[in-house]
């Protein structure tokens, strides 16, 4: 069964822009990969994906300040007034 993969929708979700010329190529690759996946066996297990055999050690609630703002913002493409700048967003 040939499955439709909406590359445009996926690209939108992933915030990627795929050139029209590249679209078919990606779709072909994806279909190949999906086909590879298609023959996976059915596994009956309705449970959640959780592994109680590997419990997590939790962190103690203690605070510390190790970083200066300028160090943290040094890699930012655009900053102003101690903040990172992005195109205006309103919600």
């Amino acid at each position: 069964m040939e499955m439709e993969i909406d590359i445009k929708r996926l690209a939108k979700l992933a915030r990627l822009k795929i050139d029209e010329s590249r679209m078919a190529g990606f779709e072909k690759d994806m279909k190949g990969i999906v086909a590879m996946v298609e023959h996976l066996p059915e596994i009956s297990d309705s449970g959640a994906l959780i592994d109680p055999s590997a419990p997590m050690e939790l962190r103690e609630d203690v605070s510390e300040s190790k970083y200066r703002r300028d160090e943290l913002l040094k890699n930012a493409p655009q900053t102003q007034a101690g903040c990172v700048v992005v195109p205006r967003v309103v919600e």
């Binding site: 609630d61 203690v62 605070s63 510390e64 007034a81 101690g82 990172v84």
Partner: peptide, 19 residues
């Protein structure tokens, strides 16, 4: 709490931006 949920930064309101 004293610190944030996933790191040890202080959980404090009203401080200078990005500090």
């Amino acid at each position: 709490t004293e610190s944030k949920i996933y790191c040890s930064c202080r959980n404090k309101f009203g401080v200078e931006v990005n500090t």
